[in-house]
Design a protein around this nucleic acid. Structure first.
Length: 499
RNA sequence: GGCCUUAUCGUCUAGUGGCCCAGGACGUCGCCCUCUCACGGCGAAAACACGGGUUCGACUCCCGUUAAGGUCACCA
């Protein structure tokens, strides 16, 4: 045990580029990262793209960009989707470029008679599987090819037949100590002779279990921290390690993120890609804080943590065994919280792309002026993507809905009078004195006078005239931002409805 | 179905035998602030799945039941 502690901590995230960065994968990445940083260890990004048919460069790119956006940096691994770029001393960190290494071990297994060629067709296998299911048996490979002679094998290969290589699963009990669940035990009679490679004479590609086991060994992975959905893969991989005489890494299986129906979070539950959350205007700090607290917490009552403070507190001991339901309301709450905390100019910069793409602003617009608008809405923003609809009235002409201007039973006459009075008062203020404080002092006094206890009589029509909305920021800061000229224009236009 | 796993408010969770007729947060509801919407403040409702043990004492330990999830590919 003591010697174990001396060992350098090396952990990895091993995504396959067959889809965008899933929030579950991102959380696994975060936990690996936190664990590594806490132990002064190494966090590795390894791309598992052995499935050439399903792997795509754009997904690899999406994964890399997503991780970077979250601020989860890796010490070794793939650093770009452009060609072969890696950091670290363990060869390529992309499985498609490590075939030679796998072949060496596959040969070893074959030579030691721990694996064999299988020429069964997929149709054949599928039919057998369906039959087994139909009579209520677990689907299991029937080991038909296990007894093939060397001559038969050679003949088949020479003929160019496609094959798989299967591992001869020995009968035994496999137990391992899971760092989050404790002792987990499997009986291998439930495991069939699973495939470790596929191909033909010309070209052999390794399959998942083999590639994982070989890479974890070659890359000296000390702890395999992954999702609970891998727990049943663990005995197979341990079997492979034993056959290859590899030491066994520590295992930790994290609980899953669940949808509202308590099943594994997937597309049918809504957005699952980190990039989608990014587009919707969630901040990376929101995602980090949120993901960290799904299935883990440091024990106290503090709930707001940065990535750095998370590293301080992190321990696998605090990881739960049960899955956690993804709670959108909490995500929104956290995002609103972090938005409120953002320095104004930073928040303004973050809002720019949304404003630009909505066509409300141009690149040349005054950023200081824009920041005033953002400031007025900072505490009302839940996600960045909401900003255009909230502030569009600053940039566009308003088409009024007459009834929107009406406050609690006021007649047309009442409204016109109060707007007249407001206009008159405002007219006396110099453009340079059109600031929030000054406007508030003057208008509030007037509102008290006109409203006789109900300031809404003046304030509501004013704000509605200014914004055309039933909900908005306060009228004083809006007038300051709009300036005197536009303010007066809008009041006049609104007033025209009540002539 | 086999195997593996899990089980505290609606949700995320604190709780590691007495500090708990169970604490915090989100959400919900009410009140205050208030022209509106937010923010902020105050307050409320809301949970130990069930049944057996063990123990002077169980949310905490053991067994069972129930429920839920994961997994059973020439995907990873």
């Amino acid at each position: 045990m003591e010697a174990e502690k001396e060992k350098k901590v090396r952990v990895r995230l091993a995504p396959s580029p067959t889809g965008t960065l899933h929030i579950g994968t991102a959380r696994v990445a975060l936990f690996n990262y936190l664990f590594a940083k806490k132990q002064q260890g190494v966090f590795i990004l390894r791309i598992e793209d052995t499935d050439a048919a399903r792997s795509e460069d754009r997904f690899e790119k999406n994964i890399i960009e997503g991780l970077r956006w979250l601020g989860i940096e890796w010490d070794e691994g793939v650093i770009s989707d452009q060609g072969q770029s890696y950091i670290g001393d363990y060869g390529p960190y992309k499985q498609s470029e490590r075939t030679e290494i796998y072949l060496k071990y596959i040969k070893k297994l074959l030579d030691k008679d721990k694996a064999y060629y299988c020429f069964c067709s997929q149709e054949e296998l599928k039919a057998k599987k369906e039959y087994q299911m139909s009579i209520g048996q677990p689907p299991h490979y029937d080991e038909k090819c296990k007894q093939l002679t060397a001559e038969e094998i050679e003949k088949n290969i020479a003929e160019g037949k496609r094959f798989t290589i299967r591992f001869k699963t020995p009968l035994k009990k496999i137990a391992f100590n899971d760092l989050v669940r404790g002792k987990v035990e499997f009986d291998t009679n439930l495991i069939d002779d699973f495939t470790i490679a596929k191909g033909s004479k010309e070209n052999i590609t390794p399959l998942f279990h083999l590639a994982v086991v070989v890479d974890d060994q070659e890359m000296e992975i000390s702890h395999v921290i992954r999702g609970e959905d891998h727990i049943s893969n663990t005995p197979k991989q341990i079997l492979l390690q034993e056959a290859l005489e590899f030491p066994r890494p520590e295992y930790a299986h994290l609980p899953l993120i669940l949808g509202p129906d308590k099943s594994k979070l997937s597309k049918r539950h809504g957005a699952v890609a980190i990039s989608e959350y990014q587009q919707q205007g969630y901040l990376p700090e929101t995602m980090i804080n949120f993901m960290a607290f799904l299935g883990w917490n440091p024990g106290g009552e503090k709930e707001i943590y940065s990535l750095a403070s998370l590293i301080e507190e992190f321990s696998l001991d605090g990881v739960h065994k049960g899955g956690a339901i993804f709670n959108m309301q909490r995500l929104d709450f956290l995002n609103a919280f972090y938005i409120r905390k953002k320095p104004l100019m930073e928040l303004t910069e973050l809002c720019l792309p949304y404003l630009l793409s909505s066509g409300l602003i141009k690149k040349t617009d005054d950023i200081v002026w824009l920041s005033k608008i953002i400031q007025a809405y900072q505490e009302r923003l839940k996600k960045l993507s909401e900003i255009p609809e909230l502030v569009d009235f600053f940039f566009q002409e308003i088409e009024y809905d007459k009834e929107l201007l009406r406050w609690k039973g006021m007649t047309d006459e009442d409204i016109r009078k109060t707007l007249d009075k407001t206009e008159e008062v405002l007219e006396k203020i110099e453009p340079e004195d059109f600031n929030k404080e000054n406007l508030q002092n003057i208008i509030m006094a007037e509102a008290e006078a006109i409203g006789a206890g109900d300031r809404g009589k003046l304030l509501w029509p004013l704000r509605a005239a200014l914004t055309g909305k039933k909900a908005s920021a306060g009228p004083f800061e809006i007038m300051e931002i709009l300036g005197k000229e536009k303010t007066m224009e809008r009041i006049k236009k609104a007033k025209a409805l009540f002539k």
